[in-house]
């Protein structure tokens, strides 16, 4: 994954959710060791939701989201309930490649 052009990462997830929690954690593990010097990272972890019964079905678990900011100012909001880590990587790489090409053309 190209992390060079990401400037901010903000995510909210529950680690006990087998689907979205895993994707979010995998994404955070893909960031390089010096990520916190180059980008703003804000991670919020939710407590484990009570098992869904008829009584508390009115209060659903808040959706897990991943908000990314890029160097050109683009904001990317990814829904972790639907996307897997491969899809997230694809989305990030598609925009990062574009930025990389622009940078090459301007000669920086």
């Amino acid at each position: 994954m190209i992390t060079k052009f990401i400037t901010s990462v903000s995510t909210t997830f529950s680690p006990f959710n087998a689907r979205s929690g895993k994707t979010a954690r995998s994404f955070l593990a893909l960031l390089p060791p010096n990520a916190r010097q180059n980008m703003k990272i804000d991670v919020k972890m939710l407590p484990r939701a009570a098992p869904s019964t008829s009584s508390n079905s009115a209060k659903p678990e808040p959706a897990a989201v991943l908000l990314l900011g890029f160097k050109d100012g683009k904001q990317m909001s990814l829904d972790l309930e639907k996307l897997k880590i491969k899809d997230v990587q694809e989305e990030v790489d598609r925009h990062s490649r574009l930025l990389g090409r622009q940078e090459e053309l301007t000669g920086n």
């Binding site: 680690p15 006990f16 954690r25 955070l28 060791p33 916190r36 990272i41 991670v43 972890m45 407590p47 484990r48």
Partner: peptide, 20 residues
């Protein structure tokens, strides 16, 4: 420490989340 994230705990065979 910024890169360590606490996920949960296992106490006497039972699983707890961060709050627990």
């Amino acid at each position: 420490l910024q890169k360590l994230m606490m996920l949960g705990a296992r106490v006497e065979g039972k699983v707890f989340d961060m709050e627990g």
